[in-house]
Every structure is written in C-alpha cells, then in structure tokens.
Design a protein around this nucleic acid. Structure first.
Lengths: 182, 182, 182, 182
DNA sequence: CATGAATGAGTATTCATTCAT
DNA sequence: CATGAATGAATACTCATTCAT
C-alpha cells in the first residue's frame, strides 16, 4: 500500500475512533470524513460499508484488549489478575462508546461480527477465570455464561452512565466480592 | 379534556408502549400511529415531540415500578424484599425495551427527564436498602451510587442480552452475594 | 383519498410522464419533484420506489394502448385495423421514451414488471393479427414471436432515432408489405 | 508512441470491448481497468473521457463492419449480398451490446460521433443497395432513410431482446420480403 | 509513463414534524 | 378536534475524473 494511502487510512480510522468513542454508533460517514479531513470517497475506498468501518475499530479494540490479557496469565496472583482484567474491560468500555455493545452478550461468540477476536477475548477471560478458580480466589461454581453476562452488564452500565474511576471501583468491588464467594 | 380526546391519548400511549417494548427506542411515529389506529397528528396533539411520547411511557413504567415497592416496604424479611425488588426491576427491563436506559445511571436523579418519578423510584430503592441494612441482610457500607450503578448495569445487560430467567437468577445471585458482604 | 392528495398524485404522475418522455428512464426523483413542484417526500408517499413510479407511468401507457385496440377489433377492414394498431404503437413509442423498452422483447409477458397489462396488449395484438389473417390481409405463416420482435424493433428504432411521421410511414410501409406476404 | 504505451492502449481497448459487449454501455471505468489489468490513469492517458473510450470501440466495430462489405460488393448475386450484409449487421448487434445504438439512426451521418466510419458504413450499405436494385432484387423505390431506419430498428431489437438465430431469420425474412417489393 | 488514491457531486430513500383539509 | 399529506434535511453509497506518488 502506498504511503499516502496508509496515512489516510490511519487518519480515517483515528477520526472514526474519536467520533465513535464520543458520539456512539450513530456517527455519520460525513462526520467521520470531515473529522478526518478527507473526502467521503476516501472512506469508502478503505472500508466498503459503514459497518465495515465501525467494525474495524471495534475489532481492533477488542483485539488489543484480548492481547493485553497475555501478561496477566503469568501473574503471580491469579485472582488479582482476573479482577484486574475484568476491571480493564469495564474501564475501556466506559471511555469508548460502542465497545460495550460488543463485549455485551453474544458478541464474544465467533458467530458475531467480531470474527475471531471475539473468541480470543472470551478465551482470555476463560483462562484467567480458570487460573483464579484453581488458586481459590474465585468461587468454583462460577461459569462463563453468568460471568459474561455480568461483565457485559458492567460494560454497558459504565458506558451509559459514564462511571468515573471511583464509582467503578466501588461497584466492581461489590461485584467481585460476589464472585469470590459468599 | 373531551372524552374522545382522553380515549385517544390512552390508545396512543398503549400502542406506543407495545411497540416500544418490542422494538426499542428506534420506533417510528408512524408505527405508533398505525398500531394505535389514529392519525399522526393525533399523536402530536397529545405529545409535542417524539421524545415527549417515549418519555411519557417510560415515566409511567418507572412510576408503576416505584409504586410496586410499597408492599415490600412492610415485608417480614427486609433483605429478601430488597433483593426481590432489585430482581423485579431487572426483570422488567429484560422484557420492556428502552426501560433500562432510564433506570440506568442518571435517570433516577430528579434533574433528568423522568421528572419526579425518578426520585420516587430512587427513594423506594433507598428505603428498601435501609431496611435491609438495618436487618443485617445487606452490608452496611453499600451506598446508593454504586447500588444504582449496578442496578442500571444489570438492567442494561438483561435488556441487551435478553437474559432468560435462569441466567438472570445466576447472575443476580452472584451480585447479591456481593451486596450481602464479603 | 383526499382531494389535495389526489391532485398532487396527478401532478407527480404528469411531471414524471413529461420528464420520462423527454429524458428517458434515467430521470432522477429530484428532477420529477422539481418539475411537479412538490417535495421529494410527496413522491414517495404515492410511489414507494423509483421503479414503482416509472412503472406506474409505463403501465398506464401500455394499458391505454391496449384499450385503444378495442374499436379496431370491430373494424370493417381487419388488415387495415391490424396495421393501424401496429403503427399506433410505434407512433407512441416515438413520442414517449421508455415505452419502447417495455413493448420490446419479453416486456409483454405477464412475468415482466408490466403485470397484467403486458398480457392485455399482447392479447390485443394477437386478436388483431388473427382477424387480419382470417381476412387474408396478412400472411398466414406470421406468428407472434417474430411479429413482436419486429414491433419491438420498430418501437425502439422510432424512439431512438426520433422517426418523424413521414419516415415512420415509409419504414412501416415496407415492413407491412413483408407482413402481407411475398 | 512508446511500445509499452501502444501495448497498453490495445489492452484497454480489448478489455473495454469485452465488457462493453457483455454488459452494455453502463460499464464503469473501473471495470474496464480491472479487466485490462491496468490502472485507471492508464485509461485516461489514452482516452480523455469515458465517452471517448466507448466511442473508439464502436468506431472500430463499425469500421470492421464497413470493411467486411468489400467482398460482397463483387458477389455474383447482388440481392443476396445486400441481404447478407443487412443480416450481418443485425447479427453483430445482437452479440455486441452498444453497437445497435450507433448503427441506429443518426449514427451513420458523418456529423455524429462516429466520425468518418459512419459515412463509410453508410456508403457500403448504399452501394450494396444500388447493386441489388439494379439487379432487380430489391424494390427500386427503397431509399436510404427508411432502409437505415429499419436496419437500426432491427439492430436495436436484436440487441435488446436477444434474438436467437432462428428468430432473427424469421423476422428478417419478413422484412426482406417487404424490401423486395409487394 | 503507470498507478490507484482521493475527490465530491449526485442518487434513492427515510422520518420527525407541520398544517391544510 | 382528527387526519394524513406534504415537507425537506439527512443518510449511505457510487463513480467519472484528477493528480500525487
């Protein structure tokens, strides 16, 4: 790919990321184009449809999240690692609109638009959970469906209600007590 | 107001409630009019804007929810009453689209579009919480902000991901363990 | 239907008829709206899609053509009636763009977008042909496929090349000699 | 012109010929570029506009048609030669989209976009006609305007309606009977 | 000289809202 | 007072053409 094309592709992605993070999934293509300082056609050159552009951004976010789980899988305290990652996912959702929608619900199954990265994030969560359970830091009867349900809910709540750090810590603190066991 | 006007107002409200519950907040005014069997103008006679109509419905829902808390305030088991009401709010959210948005977050402050009923729901929750805490069934350090944050998150998650009863019970069971205390 | 709605529907149809007759099937909806002096939404109220509007016009033209065959079926000179109708179809095509496309080819089969009127026109042509053949004014071995092929071709030629009356008479005169027999 | 430039010009012409013949005049420049395996800019280097490219192709087709008339001018049976050529033009139109438009109507006047070749084709047709008339195989009162009108119409019909060989023979057979005389 | 990235005017279509009937 | 016809701004997307690389 030519240098200027790659540069413009990045500008489009960054502009779309910004307006998407700020305004949510209802962004118009024209708004993205103006923000990026490019023509409408330039967006469509790099992303065939509106959905493709938005998905590219969300997929990238989810991928980064999944990748960031790597170091935590080798952390000394498996339970802390699990809760750290849970918090991180919620945290990113609070700051980036349209991410929670994907983390929430079925979005982590490969069948969804996320493609493979949905499964990767899910796998990362599951691995962290298993280690934490083996270490006794998370109750043994916690299964993935309810964990994902709660994680998705927290992400949606954090996004919609713009949880600040303090609120997030208090809310997740309560939730984590429940995940540790009664 | 003339009797037929009042009757039409009710028909509009009921129709809007149905389509809003089913299709979510993206519902079109025409869809509401057709469902109600009235003209578009009739809707606008009773509700000045689309937002006003939707809000009237949500306000009504929230009001009913708040009123339904009454008996629970006199229940024998304050903690059970608290958790019952929490579950009820989540349950209704899962079945009625566009409710979770209001329960979530700032919607329960009087400053929001909900008007007074937001405060009423909030007051009901707070009263149930205080009784449950006094009875020792809920941890004493649980404050309203994080409680509302978690309640809103659960509502959003239940709506978006269409929690079934079993999933709702498992997810809320974990959360309630956290609310009882570590 | 309300009087003003019917009036506007007619204005739209007439405006679309004009621009379609003049500019062909590539007309834009905006051009029709401006010509009709109505808003874009008004067109879409009466015709759900661009295709529906254009088809309504062409269907109407074809219907009128088919209906105009009625008196000719009772004419004294069956052969003259047949040739008169053939000429009429070509004549209208020369004056109204986008008609020839429908008369030409498969457009007269009910499967096409013309719906029933395509079949009616075809039936009218066939009836006129049979009478003319029975009267000995048209060769007996003339069948519908080649007749429709020639009629469609003449319509297309007349439209594309804007045959004037004299040219049309000369060209069709030659063709009719062929249809009478060698 | 450099050898590679000439080579690219040919590739563009051939690719455009193919897609034009298959898909008709609505072909996009990008489709031509991809088919030719060259960049869009290369097309515009050789042809200043979309129209220029399409015309170059049609001009070439018409030129070849005109040239193919040469041997027929020396054929033993002038009438057969005339009808053979008429059939050939229709035949090519049926197989190559966007040709009929040019053969049809004014396209054969030098004033049109075809440039000189339009006149050449016209001259070839006229020469064949004169010989056939002199030999008594075509009616003496057949003049060029109506002949061209009918030829153009047949070309358009054959293209639009995708006449197969049998239909073409039947339709043209009827027409030729008319051209021979009543 | 070749490339293909960028442009942006243009397209059909939707929908909240107004207002003549 | 009810109706629903009319409005027109807004949306996603296409494609001939230009021009930086």
């Amino acid at each position: 790919m030519r240098a200027d094309a790659e540069r413009n592709r990045q500008r489009v992605l960054e502009a779309a990321e910004e307006v998407l993070a700020r305004d949510g999934a209802a962004v118009s293509m024209r708004a993205v184009a103006e923000r990026a300082g490019v023509g409408l056609g330039t967006i469509y050159r790099h992303f065939p449809t509106r959905e493709a552009l938005l998905q590219a951004i969300v997929v990238d976010r989810v991928r980064r999240l999944a990748e960031s789980a790597g170091p935590l899988l080798a952390a000394d305290d498996p339970a802390a690692a699990f809760f750290t990652f849970f918090t991180r996912v919620v945290d990113v959702s609070a700051r980036k609109k349209a991410l929670a929608d994907e983390v929430s619900g079925a979005g982590l199954d490969p069948k969804a638009g996320l493609g493979a990265v949905g499964g990767q994030l899910r796998a990362a969560i599951e691995a962290l959970l298993r280690r934490a359970q083996a270490a006794g830091g998370v109750r043994a009867d916690l299964a993935m469906p309810e964990l994902l349900a709660l994680l998705g809910a927290a992400c949606l709540g954090a996004e919609r209600n713009q949880w600040d750090d303090a609120l997030r810590d208090r809310a997740l603190g309560l939730l984590f007590d429940g995940l540790r066991g009664p």
